[in-house]
Simulated scan of single mutants.
Amino acid sequence: MAEPLSGPLHKTPLHQLHVEAGAKMVPFAGYDMPVQYPTGVLTEHNWTRSDAGLFDVSHMGQAFVVGPTWEATAKALEALVPADILNLKPGQQRYSQLTAEDGGILDDLMITRSAYAGYEGWAYLVVNAGCKEQDFAHIGPRLPDGVTLKPDATLALIALQGPKAAAVLDALLPGIAATPFMTFTETKLDGMFVHASRSGYTGEDGFELCVEAKDAAAIWQRLLSDERVKPIGLGARDSLRLEAGLCLYGHDIDTTTSPVEAGLTWSIQKRRRTEGGFPGATRIQKELADGPARRRIGILPDGRAPAREGTVIKAADGAAIGTVTSGGFGPSVSGPVAMGYVNARFAEPGTPVLLEVRGKDLPAKVVTMPFAPHRYFRG
């Protein structure tokens, strides 16, 4: 997960608490972030699957798009993303992608419609840490008159994930466990503002808590005072999202991949598929109609050797047909798992493939994702 150093690293409001907890810190997306705590990645991964893991995701970009009405804001966003934003209900959020004119993906993001009086024209955005500056530079100038982008660096973001997350949070914020997946509740914890969305990137049930940076440490420690909660680093966050079959920007999706190739067609609602009107619509609508030339697939190696990013995927006859984009050990399945792109002719689940690992062709097969079942609470 570590990335090369280039200039001084930023610190999240929780940095000192990670250091005091003995976390191994690494550079990631321009921030000094915890990759693991003393118990290690495997323990942290399994704890999140069985109890409740606490993640610092304050490095992510948070912003608001503000227009005079929801219709104005939604139409401005629909000129940038392929999702149906206009029909979001107050308090509902949706996953989408910023697409380029050629249909490639500039970033993926979450978009939430405000549910509060006086904020009817507000949308809340969460974008990837490594892309936030370019995302904001992309979005701002493309908004029409009367609609503005307001990045907010005064906010922190904490994710509480796992089967016990809702019970932990409900003990502090009674009634919050009833919040359905992909909606949010705004409340206060000990007088501190909390925007709690039922979402996350682990495949588990859980919440993402947008809080004021000045309150982040107090809220983090309050959550950790519950014995069901342990802090989790970037290492386990990556293995959890890989098992959940979720894309990591810059690896499984980027400017060369379209949402259709990536298997993200579900995130483009019917109206937008028909009407278009977003960047890259020509390519995306053609791929929806005719099928893409390549597809993102899940891969289950036969043996114990993991296939890492960049591994060549071959057909049974040895011809190269694609590349692994994410791969590693899946603790929940007790073996290696991977995802990548192959020629669409080889994307059918059950198709035998070969993975070129350390100069050897190792047998594997194409499988349906996720590798570990999603456990979202849909109400």
Rank of each mutant, 00 (worst) to 15 (best):
K188V: 09
D361T: 03
R304N: 13
F184D: 11
Y201A: 05
R241E: 04
G350T: 01
D145G: 13
L355D: 02
L248T: 09
L224M: 12
A115S: 14
E101M: 11
L86E: 15
G276D: 13
R295E: 12
Q285L: 03
E186I: 06
V66Y: 09
G379D: 11
R304H: 11
D190M: 08
T154M: 08
L9W: 04
G280Y: 03
G245M: 12
A338Y: 04
S58R: 11
R271S: 15
V19Q: 12
T274P: 00
P373F: 03
I219T: 02
L80W: 03
L209Q: 07
T265M: 09
D317M: 06
G203I: 05
F64S: 13
N343W: 04
L54A: 03
V366R: 06
D190Q: 14
P4V: 04
T99G: 05
V127G: 10
Q161P: 05
G67R: 10
P336Y: 00
A123P: 08
T154F: 03
L300M: 08
Y119D: 15
Q36V: 10
R271G: 11
F193T: 11
K75F: 09
G310K: 05
Y95N: 06
F28G: 01
R296T: 02
H18P: 11
D170L: 07
E275H: 08
I158V: 09
H195K: 10
M110R: 12
G303L: 02
V333D: 00
T255G: 07
G175S: 07
L143N: 07
V41I: 15
Q269T: 02
P259D: 06
A316L: 10
K24T: 15
R375D: 11
A153E: 13
A165E: 11
P279T: 07
I313Y: 02
P336W: 01
H251I: 00
G118T: 06
A364F: 00
A100T: 10
S114E: 10
G121S: 07
I105V: 14
D361A: 13
T311A: 03
